[in-house]
Simulated scan of single mutants.
Amino acid sequence: MIALRQALTYLRGHSDIIKECSIVTDSQLVLTALRNMRQPTTLQLETWELAVNLAREISLRFHRTPSHSGNEKNDAADQLAKAAATDQATAPIYKLAPRAHVKRRLRNFSLEAWKERWRTATTGRTTASFLPDPCYDRKITGDFDFYMVQLMTGHGNFNSYLKRIGKIDNDLCECDGTDTSEHVLFHWVLFAQQRIVADRVLAARGLRRPANYREVTEVRDERDWWDDFRSFSNRVDKLKVN
């Protein structure tokens, strides 16, 4: 598009002597963009306006030639463009970037900063046991429901959490252990038999059910573990209490 804009700018400066011109490009994308002006970029609009105004003064045509098809002049244009693009001494002739490109760059910067904070933070380590970074693969994990999130964060209907936020004074479980999310998921005697069944199912698939949050890191890339985790969390009645 920049090359086309430069060609049109040259023609406009010589429209007193050039009355007919055919512009040849190997970019179907550029020609399509000039026909679709519903949401043009700044560069696209500039090029289109140049073409429209110039067409009032000279006979202007656009043609497409296939790339790398033996067209000597097109091959030469490709070589010149690559040479200019890699020459650090060549000053840029166009410094604006498409909005979509800027948004993509900003999003990438934000994601990288988020990943770094996720990796180095001292809080949220329970959740980090399940997810190594914030950009997890839903094909493996599936969608998280309300019950899973309580166990993944430690924020839920657990006596240790309710005590921490001042709702109750006692953090013990009915089995005399400390009522934490980790205790419910891995140690609560009420679900001992279900954990044994889950162990057998995972063992048949070459996996071992983790015994604590640290060991979750060994299976968090396995869909079978997430299926077991989802099934377990949906059977814990205390997680359903508001």
Rank of each mutant, 00 (worst) to 15 (best):
P132T: 06
T141G: 00
V197G: 00
L34F: 03
A77S: 05
W114V: 01
L31C: 10
L106T: 14
N234D: 08
M1G: 12
Q39K: 15
T178N: 05
T141Q: 00
F62Q: 11
Y161E: 07
L45V: 03
N242S: 15
L43R: 00
A128K: 02
G13T: 00
S22F: 03
G206L: 05
L29C: 04
Y94R: 06
A192E: 10
T42I: 15
R56Y: 04
L50H: 09
R107D: 08
E222F: 00
P92Y: 02
F158M: 06
W48Y: 10
K139C: 01
W48H: 07
D145V: 07
S110C: 05
G13R: 12
P134L: 08
H101M: 11
R38V: 11
N170A: 01
C173E: 06
V184Y: 00
Y136R: 09
A121S: 15
D75A: 09
R205T: 02
V102C: 09
L106R: 12
H101K: 11
A192I: 04
R119K: 11
S67A: 15
V201N: 08
D179Y: 05
A83G: 13
K19H: 15
P40T: 07
N71V: 15
I140F: 01
A203R: 08
L131F: 15
P92A: 00
R230M: 01
G154W: 09
D78V: 04
T127P: 02
T127D: 02
T153R: 11
D26W: 03
V30G: 03
L8G: 04
D16Y: 02
